[in-house]
Design a protein around this nucleic acid. Structure first.
Lengths: 136, 136
DNA sequence: GTAATTGCAAAAGATTTGCCCCATT
DNA sequence: AATGGGGCAAATCTTTTGCAATTAC
């Protein structure tokens, strides 16, 4: 599945970053990945984290998430298409199933659109832990 | 409609920025708004543009758009809920109707979600001008 | 051995902020 | 006159990049 683009090497750094992404249920920022990786590779640098995240993104193994809710990007190991939920209170980001009805929308019918490559759905609200917002 | 939050003044700068957002069919970055505003107010500063955009966003009159496709935020005058289309070729951002089917999704049924505040849908692809991608 | 990759530090890009002056109310 | 807001420049934050040293293959 990996587009086997350019030749690459299996460095410990890259493996560790990929592992962190695979096992984390959440959606860490580069900084968070950096701190996590440092527990295993105390000398890894933030630049290396960014470089690897970009590399992995280009290979299609990692997805980057930029939203109105966060000032820094979050990353996740690529998995089947899904939506994201953002809690405005605790900033948590959770995975959501992508509603099937979106598949049936005939975007191409829309003036100005020629073809669709992907879709990105974010739902913003309060998570179970944070409970209903103050305005009940 | 404006939450009439704190007391504010009608400065020429704020008016011009709001006008630019209202009449622009596109979704300008702060920098673009800055250059446009300079045609009318040659001394306006980028800091003022940002400060006003933030102010207007807090008042609910302006919406900020951050996506995977752009390194800087884009802004638009608040209007009825809609989705956005991003052309990966020419970077254009266009408005799209928000599919009604999304209203019927019962997110609250999803574990971990307590309540929904808003939704953000981005469609990525090629616009009519740029034509179908190379991989026809 | 060779080239990809790293660590470090400096650079770049986007946005925010402090401060002092000016303009709206 | 009172004070919100502006201009300017410095500061902050996030991400990228140049370079010499290192390491996977």
């Amino acid at each position: 599945m990996k587009p086997a683009g350019k030749k690459s090497r299996n460095t410990r750094q890259r493996t560790v970053i990929m592992e962190i992404l695979r096992k984390s249920g959440y959606h860490p920022t580069a900084e968070a990945i950096y701190h996590e990786a440092r527990k295993v590779l105390p000398n890894i640098s933030l630049g290396t984290v960014y470089r690897n995240l970009n590399f992995l993104r280009e290979q299609g193994q990692v997805r980057e998430i930029r939203t109105d809710c966060d000032s820094s990007s979050r990353f996740e190991g690529k998995c089947p298409p899904h939506a994201h939920f953002h809690c405005t209170n605790c900033q948590a980001v959770l995975d959501l199933p992508l509603p099937e009805c979106l598949d049936e929308v005939r975007w191409e019918g829309t003036t100005d659109i020629s073809s669709i490559q992907s879709m990105d759905l974010h739902v913003i609200g309060a998570c179970r832990e944070c409970g209903p917002p103050v305005t009940v």
